[in-house]
């Protein structure tokens, strides 16, 4: 029971971490609070569902298609919708409000398109649904794979952003957007890259989620909500924070569901959120301000 819950929690947490990392990159570097993030994930879920059931493509191969497409589409969304808002915003606060409003609209557009295309029912497919014996408990192989993928992607990203020159450029924009141009950094390009990267992460999360869980066109907001809480939990813009916060949220949810009541998972999440707001609003890994 305990090991079982622990593994389920880690699997869910790995997904939340992946979801939240995309959001925190977009918010930390591009300064866009993307409320349509969860719907991007669900769109990727449906994409891998189509690739699997129509073309017989395994989700692992689907990653190689869906993730680049996610990157390119998010890049386009940034160029068409976000860039004009960034250009007209007199300060970060105004951009925050505008981006919240515009992505709120985008949320309904994506959700509407998915509803028209796939209807409102729960969808899913069976992939690697073979039982694996792990420390005496039976776990579906697809769940383990999902956890593995989430960790690999998450840790690779943290490594790339903290160790490469390209990652340093992005972090510079996140920390000091006013000063970054002084050392020759193209802020506009960095912001676009970060937004597209966030979209690619959402696409990755979507494929990973679709491997082990059913989904509907309307549950995107739930993902966005949890990702937002994880972002605050870990500290705005902190990738390590998002990774740890995501795993923590997954564990808390699963333990509450297993030992207290499945109907109270969101309440537990919000209880943590409330405590954090009162005790340490900058998050575990965030800087003040």
């Amino acid at each position: 029971m305990l090991i079982d819950t622990l593994i389920t929690g880690l699997v869910a947490g790995g997904t939340y971490a992946l979801v939240a990392m995309g959001l925190t990159i977009q918010f930390g570097i591009s300064r866009i609070m993307n409320l349509a993030h969860g719907d991007t994930i669900i769109a990727a879920c449906f994409a891998s569902f189509v690739l699997f059931s129509v073309f017989g493509l395994s989700p692992i191969l689907a990653l190689m298609i869906v993730v680049p497409v996610g990157y390119v589409l998010s890049d386009a969304v940034y160029r068409i919708i976000m860039r004009p808002l960034v250009a007209r915003a007199p300060n970060a606060g105004a951009l925050e409000v505008d981006s919240i409003l515009v992505t709120f609209g985008l949320l309904f557009v994506i959700q509407g398109v998915l509803l028209v295309a796939f209807g409102g029912n729960y969808t899913g497919y069976a992939f690697l649904n073979t039982p694996v014996d792990l420390f005496g408990t039976i776990v579906a192989a697809n769940r383990l794979l999902a956890l593995l993928l989430a960790l690999v992607f998450g840790i690779t990203l943290i490594f790339v952003l903290s160790r490469t020159r390209w990652g340093m450029t992005l972090r510079a924009v996140s920390i000091a957007p006013e000063n970054a141009p002084l050392v020759g950094i193209d802020i506009n390009r960095a912001a676009r890259t970060a937004f597209a990267l966030g979209g690619a992460l959402a696409a990755t999360a979507g494929v990973v989620v679709s491997m082990y869980q059913t989904f509907t066109a309307t549950i995107g907001v739930i993902f966005t909500m949890k990702a937002l809480i994880v972002v605050i939990l870990g500290g705005k813009g902190s990738l390590t924070g998002a990774l740890i916060g995501g795993l923590l949220l997954g564990l808390v949810e699963t333990f509450v569901a297993a030992y207290i009541d499945p109907g109270l998972t969101l309440a537990a999440t919000y209880a943590i959120f409330l405590l954090l707001l009162i005790l340490r609003p900058t998050g575990f890994f965030g800087q003040a301000g």
Binding site: L228, D261, A267, L277
Partner: peptide, 25 residues
């Protein structure tokens, strides 16, 4: 302001689940 937005984004869902839980249990 961003904390307020995030909190209010999920508030309706939270209350809906709490009410549902209370009514069912």
């Amino acid at each position: 302001g961003i904390y307020f937005v995030i909190f209010t984004f999920g508030l309706a869902e939270l209350i809906r689940q709490l009410v549902t839980w209370y009514e069912v249990n």
